[in-house]
Amino acid sequence: MTKADTEHAGFFTRELLTTIPSLRAFARSLGATPDRADDLVQETLIKAWANQQSFVQGTNLKTWLFTILRNTAYSEYRKRWREVEDADGSYAAGLVSEPAQIAHLDMADFKLALSGVPQEQREALVLIGASGFSYDEAAKICGCAVGTIKSRVNRARQRLATTLGLNDISGGGEASADGEHSDALGSAQADLSSPDAR
């Protein structure tokens, strides 16, 4: 091992170490329990270490690590998440960290509301609103278009606002994630009935 290699390894280790808290927070936000989140982080660290040659110097290491964690999470836990999510309030429970130093009642409502946001939208909202990524970086992490991220973030916010009663919209309060869906239903039904009407 050359001196440069050793220095690089030291740098890499330090960078991994400083990203751990954020990786754990992200895993928990995705719906993993504390134990599962730590398993995910551990696997991410091992994979990152084994593949450090494939990390492109000068690019964002945090983005790379989040991508690894997300891919790991989705390949291994997708099914389980779908099964357990919201079934027993385990998502909200998983987010409870002790000691809860903040106005806990208020935050409990927020956690519950967040658990009701569909996974893909929640993930986009967390990456943009909390993890500090740009839309561009979040799109890379999720493997989708920037426009898709924007749309998901909007819908997540909309859903949260509706659940938390932050919307002042009167009457048309259905502007939630399901809004476009029911519009589609309405117009499709109108289309279907039109041949008979003629």
Partner: peptide
């Protein structure tokens, strides 16, 4: 609230 929650987890 989202940042608060995340920071709490990060801490």
């Amino acid at each position: 609230k989202l940042r608060l929650l995340y920071e709490q987890l990060e801490a």
